[in-house]
Nucleic acid binder design. Structure first.
Lengths: 233, 233, 233, 233
DNA sequence: GATGAATGAGAGTTCATTCAT
DNA sequence: CATGAATGAACTCTCATTCAT
């Protein structure tokens, strides 16, 4: 077995250090904000010299932008993984909501940081770009649900999306300071709201699986009894 | 001789200047953020000398905190006015929602500013204090509705509150960048959601059976078994 | 007698400090060159805080430019004074040459400094502007001499000017390192060259024995004596 | 087997690379000045790694000094070539002047550079050394001219030399910014001045007052003698 | 009370030089 | 020999705060 992994290539080494710097920067930024962070601080955390940082990121600003971009890319990637393989739209939404709120509770500071920075004229525009990519995960699920007539199609997508993410973000914030509150409850409640929207708008309330299951349970019991009658004959 | 209005007392003069400084600070902070604002800038806007600012506010930080406190006091005061005299809880909520989202759209920068600044360890704690006072307006209306059995009382208050404010804040943000979207629609939709919650939890949920594959599978199985029962007779 | 002078006006105080900074800067620049000089150094020499320098000069560059401008203004002013009241063009040129070479010997480093600095794109252009103003002093004298037919008018002005200033500058440099050489000699020699030019180009050399009054006086005396000799025979 | 040319010796290879670096340095220094040039820039221009430069030159300063030395050596060498084979002193001076002014016009930046840099305490001393060697070319011609009685020998050599080089340098500078002016004219004019000096001092003096005085002295003596004769009669 | 000139610590960034590979 | 990543001292400039007037 060749030790191909033991000796990292130059490219890998560069990326490793880049990663290390970005992590140091993230920690520093989270602790003290953008303006509150000194490059010297980042360098120290990364265990390198001040000047070295500039070999990997041209300016403090670039570092911040790279960090934000990385965060969003990561977030989106993990969101996709979180809903992967879940076919049922409602279940997928539930998984996405859970992922979202948990991530936000854990890393609420990052989100705040990514939004608070008027670091650069382009940043705000950039940020919306990232967000758009991220909410795409939601949009895809929703459209799938609409196709299958599980979600109603009257309401504009953005309205539902705003409720979805707005509630989760706000709750993440409040839960952060009221740990006794349950994120699970928030998600369930949110899913319920979405279900209700559908039912309310589709005049004839569209049977949920939950209720139908109860019905089937009763039917099963009935069949059991019939079988019992038949078998005892 | 009533000169009460003609000659402002010393106290009033002090407060007047304090006010002027705070307004100058607000404008500057909103335009350039906390770190982007110079004390000299604030002084210039207030039409006074740089050193004079320090006679009214001990540090730049104090000024920021005063500004934030003022903003929240103002917000709460106006919110109370907005729902004043509206008896019907749903109508009151609607009025509050409208006030909230409109204020946020107009002054989204302020909210962001009040939240983005880790100016001082105490600030974050302080901030939640302000918020608590503010959301009290919502809570009061909600409780009144619960008393009158217009809102259901099962769901924890905070859950509804999170949906309410979370959605409004998020929508305010998105509307900021998509002016074609309607704040009115957001409010209507939100109120509808709240109504539905009540109806959903109180009324008899009208389940019909039809849709789910799983349901049909199980039903088929049962029919098969019934055939078995019938065949064995 | 009012002590108007004892209490400097604000304006005067500002100018005084500005002057002090510029002198500190001049010394520092002369000692270490532009790039070799730190703002901290200038501040220390001026006996003020580093930041204070920036209240008087926006950048290090501005400081340099102000210094250069001041030097040229000074130089021109003194040159004008040096030739003031000297009517005879040749004598005026001689005075100017003496002033120029002596100034350069004393302050050769400054001249070098003013020319060596590619501090700013505009600087070089600016510098030529200053120089033009300065050499104007020469040009005026020369034209006066041409009007009076003391200087010939065939040769382009710039050619004579180049000899004049070129020689003086070069000699100033060499004398700097060979103090035994005489600046006076340089000037005399230069003036002689200029005279010769005139004579050479004005075909018939103007001086024959004829002219000088002193010569004629002595000649007359001699003739008188010869008459005496003749008379006594 | 003679591979002397095919395979450069180690020594040659070293010198080749040294040469390449110095050329890169020269270009960089000329373009951006000493302080404006980065070692990385020089390395890039030379097509080698940053660290490699230090294998050939101990510091940036050394590199600068080497460059200056090279420049002067080159200049002197070419000057010698320029006057080589020209026997007539005046013609040789003319050739030297032409070479000098043309070189300076073309490479005025270099001269400025070589003189502007107080790179090192020793540099200025060094520089004069180079200059001395260079002006030797002039001195040799002049002395030859003096030997042949083409140039007068009264005036100290340095005085003529200062006029010669001073004028050429100054004119080179002005021509640089006034391209319509003719370098040829400068040279012709300068040679004429030198010729005139000789004629003025050697030829039948187109009597100046100084000479007339000598004449008077002789006349006086004569009259004295006549008086003596007359008196003794 | 009001002023604004003065302060000086510290920010981000650069670059000559070193040294492990 | 050659490399170029790493270093860190030093740079210019900013700005919250002070204090003599």
């Amino acid at each position: 077995m060749k030790l191909a992994e033991a000796a990292p290539t130059r490219r890998q080494k560069v990326e490793l250090k880049e990663q290390a710097i970005m992590e140091a920067a993230r920690d520093a930024f989270l602790e003290n904000g953008y303006d509150g962070t000194r490059m010297a601080d980042i360098a120290r955390r990364a265990g390198i010299a001040e000047g070295t940082v500039y070999l990997y990121f041209r300016t403090k600003n670039d570092l911040m932008r790279a960090f934000i971009a990385g965060f969003w890319a990561d977030l989106t990637e993990h969101a996709i993984i979180a809903v992967e393989g879940i076919d049922a739209p409602l279940a997928a939404l539930s998984a996405l909501a859970t992922f979202h709120i948990e991530t936000l509770i854990e890393r609420f500071d990052i989100v705040q940081l990514t939004q608070s920075e008027p670091v650069h004229p382009k940043t705000s525009q950039q940020n919306r770009e990232y967000m758009r990519t991220y909410v795409q995960v939601f949009d895809d699920i929703w459209r799938r649900g609409v196709d299958r007539c599980i979600f109603e199609s009257e309401t504009p997508l953005w309205l539902v999306r705003d409720i979805f993410f707005g509630t989760l973000e706000y709750s993440a914030r409040t839960i952060k300071f009221h740990p006794e509150r349950s994120a699970k409850l928030v998600v369930e409640n949110l899913i319920m709201v979405i279900e209700q929207r559908h039912r309310a708008l589709n005049a004839e309330p569209p049977q949920t699986i939950a209720n139908s299951d109860a019905f089937l349970d009763r039917l099963e019991t009935l069949v059991d009894r019939l079988e019992g009658v038949a078998g005892s004959q």
